[in-house]
Write a protein that binds this DNA or RNA. Structure first.
Lengths: 246, 246
DNA sequence: AGCTCATGTGAACGGCTTTTACATGAGCTG
DNA sequence: CAGCTCATGTAAAAGCCGTTCACATGAGCT
């Protein structure tokens, strides 16, 4: 079995064999558990079964480990946003909202990454690689906004795509930070963070003149009752992007 | 002179005289400088000129000092939001936007409080007093949303005020967190965080059917070119809440 | 004057980060 | 295969922090 070699490497030898990766995984678990602030270099070392000094062979200091995690986080984040955007299929607005949901899903499902990326207080702009990774992730949102802006109803002033992207980002980040994570997420909401963000984005898009009179923010995947492009006659869609007030 | 008594108390005596307050002030300065994560109990004690054990006579532990600061922060926050809202004068929409700006102004001008309140990772819901203070601050936004919702144009479905409040809060918090603070604020923006948020809120309100075709978000107070109520035929006002794309 | 209790001190414990000198052994070289 | 070298690990130590405990001080009351 391939059990032998790996286990022996991992357990017995003087050399760990893959300490860097083991430390990253350990740190990820610890951050998910206790937050980036509570995470400890020594703990990660202990969890990997090495002495407290060993990590310094692979990371300059604790901050560099944190940065590495944030870096990976931004990469995975970018991948998920890219997948969610799916190049604007089946239609731009649907895909755009999917990106928003992917943002929240990432914050929910990868709390450790999200924490390292946005809540650890590490200086993102001090690390060029990190900044670049963050930029690449944001560029997905930006590209999506670009496509959306190009679709602005004729006769209306075209909204600047960059501004739209920043708006969407701030909405997603605001909802994720306030309502979609461990601590403050306990605030009792009349709706789920996903629904909250979806409604927010829909209202915002309507404010830009986009037709958003599609399905209400229900969880079921219904076939779209009408083709995505609607006449812009009445600015007010029938359903409205919010449910009945409970 | 009253100089005597205070100074002697502060400098000489075995007893400090007002250590609790001194510690709070010291901590506030340290947090503003190095963030809540970097802030140190021992440092605060040193800055107040007492031993490292002295603070424990006034705070159970480091977290309680942090909580006290967050608590004060929420109180000041509430006061500023209340002042900005000014009971909806001179008109609801204007006052509403002023609240948004007050949110950003607070984040910018009181980084230490903001940090303790929203970025220190302390469990807000574990401390009832803290949670109540936070709730009171949010209620200002909520009350404003309530008034705004009541003004929804006739013929449109009335948006739930709580949802609106949550939306506005998430926008303000998102913009503040991402663009209006020390670290990540370095991201080059085509506009100021204030303008960004103002545009965002205006577009959002327009999406709800509110007439928002007032002055563009310029700093000068121009007379409104057209009366505020527009026919709802075309959902798109003339000016648009964004400037020319640069 | 004397008592008492809030408030401050100093020393100590354990834990964390980081550095330094030293140990080990994996992989290359001849 | 012998031997060298260097990456990778360890142990120990210094310095910091949070926290606790026994003890000191003196402010205010009787």
């Amino acid at each position: 079995m391939s059990w032998r070699k790996e286990t022996r490497r991992a357990e017995r030898g003087y050399h760990h064999g893959n300490l860097k990766e083991a430390l990253l995984q350990a740190a990820l678990g610890l951050i998910a558990e206790k937050g980036a602030a509570g995470f400890t270099f020594a703990d990660a070392a202990r969890m990997a079964g090495v002495s407290a000094a060993a990590p310094y062979r692979h990371f300059r200091d604790r901050d560099e480990l944190l940065s590495s995690i944030a870096q990976r986080g931004f990469e995975q984040f970018e991948a998920r946003l890219t997948a969610a955007w799916d190049d604007g299929r089946p239609d731009t607005v649907t895909a755009f909202e999917r990106v928003g949901k992917a943002y929240l899903a990432f914050a929910r499902e990868e709390p450790a990454f999200y924490n390292a990326m946005f809540e650890s207080g590490l200086p993102v702009d001090a690390n060029p690689a990190l900044q670049a990774a963050s930029e690449r992730a944001f560029n997905i949102i930006r590209a999506a906004a670009e496509r959306l802006a190009a679709l602005a109803p004729p006769g209306t002033p075209r909204p600047p795509a960059l501004m739209m992207a920043l708006h969407i980002w701030s909405m997603a980040h605001g909802v994720a930070s306030l309502f979609s994570r461990g601590d403050a997420a306990r605030r009792k909401l009349p709706m789920s963070p996903d629904e909250l963000l979806e409604a927010e984005v829909l209202i915002y898009l309507r404010g830009l003149g986009f037709p958003t009179d599609r399905r209400p923010p229900a969880k079921s995947a219904e076939p779209p009752p009408v083709p995505p492009v609607a006449p812009s006659g009445s600015g007010v869609p029938p359903g409205g992007p919010w449910g009945k007030p409970k």
